[in-house]
């Protein structure tokens, strides 16, 4: 009786909560061959690792590819308390019965979705090891709690993202994990493309988009001089949105671009000087 209950619950939750791609394509401007490589990886059942600084378009790329490949997309933001059970699933007590609840990874494996583990190094080691059998020729997910061995549905693909910039001694991807992925390197786009992205995403004027990108390029030059994080494309888009909504350009840059980046008075002052020199109010 209990076994049938479990199976019923499992088959029930296979089709719930899996976001399907939107009708409209998420905006993404390719910088190289990443779209065709990703498509081939999907076709050949290869897992993909996206490497790159924060805010350069990794998540948007995955959304775009899910739409292009017409696959549902499950995104898991990893944190340092994420255990294997959070990915695979656990037993829950419901109405005087025990039900197995699939985790996001299991759901993706069953439905043939793209499973995107964002910032995967943040997760605990036991959580990362769970994905190993899914990323080689076996493509299976063993669930020890239920004794199931789920074979991945053909459309399933595992994608992880990883920011090599964060330097924690104790946090890095193990070589045995890294070697299971095809790695795509992301970086901030070249100025013309970045301007195009900023203009499209924010609705700002053409000249303003170009000015903001030129400004960001100069601020990125300070990366070696004590600036821990350089302005990302995402930060530029938020700034441009403020400007497009009527905030004065210099003020918008001060609050949305300069202040979030650093607390060092001299660095902030120098960046404000750059803003004042580059933009007209």
């Amino acid at each position: 009786m209990e076994e049938s209950l479990i199976k019923l619950a499992a088959s029930e939750n296979t089709c719930q909560d899996v976001p399907h791609p939107q009708a409209e394509a998420p905006y993404y401007l390719p910088f190289g061959d990443e779209v065709s490589i990703f498509t081939q990886c999907h076709r050949r059942h290869l897992a993909v690792m996206l490497k790159g600084p924060t805010g350069c378009g990794k998540t948007r790329f995955v959304e775009h590819m899910a739409w292009r490949l017409k696959r549902p997309l499950i995104i898991v933001s990893c944190h340092d308390d994420l255990t294997a059970a959070d990915l695979v699933g656990r037993f829950l007590i419901r109405d005087n019965a025990t039900v197995w609840q699939d985790g996001p990874l299991t759901r993706a494996v069953r439905t043939g979705a793209i499973c995107y583990l964002d910032e995967v190094v943040e997760a605990r080691q036991d959580a990362i090891v769970v994905i190993h059998p899914l990323t080689d020729y076996r493509r299976v997910l063993p669930i020890d709690k239920t004794g199931e061995l789920i074979e991945a549905t053909p459309g399933f693909q595992l994608v992880i993202s990883y920011n090599p910039g964060y330097q924690h001694v104790t946090k890095d991807l193990k070589p045995s994990t890294r070697q299971r992925f095809v790695a795509l390197d992301f970086d901030f786009p070249p100025p013309e493309r970045e301007a195009e992205i900023v203009i499209h995403e924010s609705g700002a004027e053409h000249a303003m988009g170009h000015d903001l990108v030129a400004l960001a390029g100069r601020i990125r030059g300070l990366a070696d001089r004590g600036l821990a994080e350089v302005p990302s494309t995402r930060l530029l888009v938020s700034t441009a949105r403020l400007i497009a909504n009527g905030i004065a350009p210099r003020l918008a840059c001060h609050v949305a671009l300069v202040s979030p980046l650093s607390d060092d008075p001299a660095l902030v002052a120098a960046m404000r000087d750059l803003v004042d020199a580059t933009l007209l109010d």
Binding site: G221, L222, A270, L274
Partner: peptide, 17 residues
């Protein structure tokens, strides 16, 4: 008074220290 600030600015503009 503003030497360090200017050095940062120049590094950003020139792309090197």
């Amino acid at each position: 008074a503003c030497r360090q600030r200017l050095e940062f600015l120049l590094s950003a503009v020139q792309g090197h220290a």
